[in-house]
Structure formats: structure tokens, C-alpha cells
């Protein structure tokens, strides 16, 4: 890193406002989530006890502190509903990311082999759907997948099926929605590593007698692993907590943890349990989040 020290001072001052903003609106709120996860549900406004106020005297503070408990966390561990929700979320995230990788890798690979002047166009084509609303894209699939939707019409017309198939409210529809929504997040990091790869490596492999297939498995794939890791994390973490896609596309027999949190919060008005769900979800995702942050920082320093 070069640059004059004289330039770094104003740049550091620029950090102050966004730093304070993120502290107050990103980090501090987790403190409130933790505090309310230790509170008890109550029929009051806001719907939990105890509440703290700076103006309270010592005795009131002590009484309020005495009301804190780990009941909500105990409930999460003992009631199967919650454990099953967490497990389902992890399974769905693992299956979705595996599918995303299987579909995204060949596309990213094809993009990296396009003539150079076509590559920005291909990149734009991948990014644009990310800009158009995610809710709209899910809605588009609902119209296609519904009972008398386009997919069933086409299948019936081609006589592939004799009767309309139930697509909506199934796990297949949910996985389709996951793949459709997260595909750009998988493709872009893969493409970034694949396009930076030195073509001389493959030529060398060819000169040494390796078949293209062999060259792919022993050179291209290992070298693209950082991109695989980045894409995987970029999809795995948000999918685990996904709410809208399973809510609109999957059936109602089993729910992912994001749906359970939503239900506890908005329908049951049980803020302490919803907060406890969030805290545990955060703990589950802490390892992938830490790895993701390290990858990002290394990329930042490498530039």
C-alpha cells in the first residue's frame, strides 16, 4: 500500500459517520434482541417483561433483572417444532447450494470462455435479474407453476402428462425458487475466479499430454475453489434464514426457521421466543459468517 499519509487522515475522518451509524443500527440492535430473548412474553405494550428505564432506582432494577430467564431458549430445545425447523433450514440450504453449484458452475465456466468482448454482456445479463425485484421473480414462477399455469398447459398439450401436476406448494417449487433467486450470487464469484485463471496453465497441461477432462479436474477445478467457497457462503447464509421463498412456494407441512420466527413474531406476538430463535440462528451461522468475512477481507487486502 503506497499513498501519502497526508491523504489518509481525511479518509479516516470519513469513517466516523458511517461507523457510528452501523454501530447504532446494526450492532447495538443485537443487544436488544439478546435482552428480549431473555425476557418473558406478556400481554402488554410492548409485549414482554421486564422493561428497563434509566430513571428506575436500584430496587426496581434488581426486580426487573430478576424477571430475566432462559425460558425461551429452553423451549427451543425441548419443543420439536423448533429443532425440526432449524434442521429443515440447514437441509434446504445444503441441497439448494449443491444444486446452485451444479447449475451455476457450467454457466460461469461458459461465460469465462466467451470471446472477451462478449464477457461484459454476459455479466450484465446475469446481474440484471438481481436488480429486478426478487418478489416479482417469485411471483412470475407462481403464475407459471399454478394448477392451470403455463407449465401444466405445455405439458398437457405435449401429452407428457395426462392430468395437471401439482407444482405449487411443494418442495420442488421451493428449490426452483431458491435456485432462480440465488443463481446470480453463485455465478458471479465463480466467474470472477474462472476468468482470472491463466490460460497458459491449460496449454501446459495440454502440452504435457493431459486430456481436456483431466486438465479440468486437476487444474481448473482446484484453482476455482476460492470462488466456489465465496459463492457457496454467499448463498448458504441467507438461504438458511430465508422467509419469502418457502412461504410462497413450499407447502405448509413443515417450515424453515425464518418462517417459524415470522410466525412467532407476527402471529403469536411472542417476541421473546422470536428473539431467541434469532439468537440461536445467529449462533448457527456464526462460523460461516466468520469465514465469509475473512474471505472478503483477504480479497480487500489483495487489491
Amino acid at each position: 500500500m503506497s499513498g501519502r499519509p497526508i491523504f489518509t487522515r481525511p479518509a479516516r475522518l470519513a469513517a466516523i459517520v458511517p461507523y457510528v451509524w452501523m454501530l447504532l443500527l446494526f450492532l447495538v440492535p443485537f443487544g436488544f434482541v439478546l435482552k428480549i430473548s431473555l425476557s418473558q412474553s406478556a400481554l402488554s405494550q410492548p409485549p414482554y417483561l421486564p422493561t428497563f428505564a434509566i430513571a428506575m432506582d436500584d430496587a426496581a432494577w434488581r426486580a426487573a433483572l430478576g424477571l430475566l430467564s432462559v425460558d425461551s431458549f429452553r423451549l427451543l430445545l425441548t419443543d420439536n417444532l423448533y429443532v425440526l425447523s432449524y434442521l429443515r433450514s440447514l437441509v434446504v440450504a445444503l441441497v439448494s447450494t449443491a444444486l446452485l453449484l451444479a447449475i451455476g458452475y457450467p454457466i460461469a465456466y461458459g461465460m469465462a470462455r466467451l470471446p472477451l468482448r462478449w464477457q461484459p454482456v454476459a455479466m450484465m445479463l446475469v446481474i440484471v435479474p438481481f436488480w429486478t425485484s426478487f418478489l416479482i421473480r417469485i411471483y412470475a414462477w407462481i403464475t407459471i407453476l399454478q394448477h392451470d399455469g403455463l407449465l401444466n398447459q405445455v405439458l398437457l398439450a405435449l401429452r407428457i402428462v395426462a392430468e395437471p401436476v401439482v407444482w405449487l406448494s411443494t418442495d420442488s417449487a421451493m428449490y426452483l425458487g431458491m435456485i432462480y433467486s440465488y443463481l446470480p450470487f453463485m455465478i458471479l464469484p465463480l466467474y470472477a475466479t474462472l476468468s482470472k485463471m491463466d490460460p497458459a496453465l491449460l496449454e501446459a497441461a495440454n502440452d504435457l499430454g493431459a486430456s481436456p477432462r483431466r486438465a479440468f479436474w486437476s487444474i481448473t477445478l482446484p484453482l476455482s475453489l476460492p470462488g466456489v467457497a465465496a459463492g457457496w457462503l454467499l448463498c448458504f447464509i441467507p438461504i438458511t434464514g430465508e422467509f419469502v421463498i418457502p412461504d410462497l412456494l413450499a407447502g405448509s407441512e413443515s417450515s424453515m426457521i425464518g418462517q417459524t420466527l415470522w410466525l412467532e413474531f407476527f402471529t403469536n406476538k411472542d417476541w421473546p421466543v422470536a428473539s431467541a430463535i434469532a439468537i440461536v440462528l445467529l449462533l448457527v451461522l456464526l462460523t460461516p459468517l466468520a469465514i465469509y468475512n475473512r474471505l472478503q477481507r483477504r480479497q480487500l487486502e489483495a487489491r
Partner: peptide, 25 residues
């Protein structure tokens, strides 16, 4: 480090967590 962490984490943080924590704030 903390600064860049706080800027990168929301990009992948499940929205239900971000939403809930902001509401409680």
C-alpha cells in the same frame, strides 16, 4: 476490521434477523 465486518455482514445476514433487530431497536 470491525468496520469492514459490519459493512460486509449485512450483505448475507438473513433478513428476518436484521428486520427483527431493527424493530426491537
Amino acid at each position: 476490521g470491525a468496520f469492514s465486518g459490519m459493512l460486509y455482514a449485512p450483505l448475507v445476514m438473513p433478513e428476518v434477523i436484521t428486520g427483527l433487530s431493527l424493530l426491537l431497536l
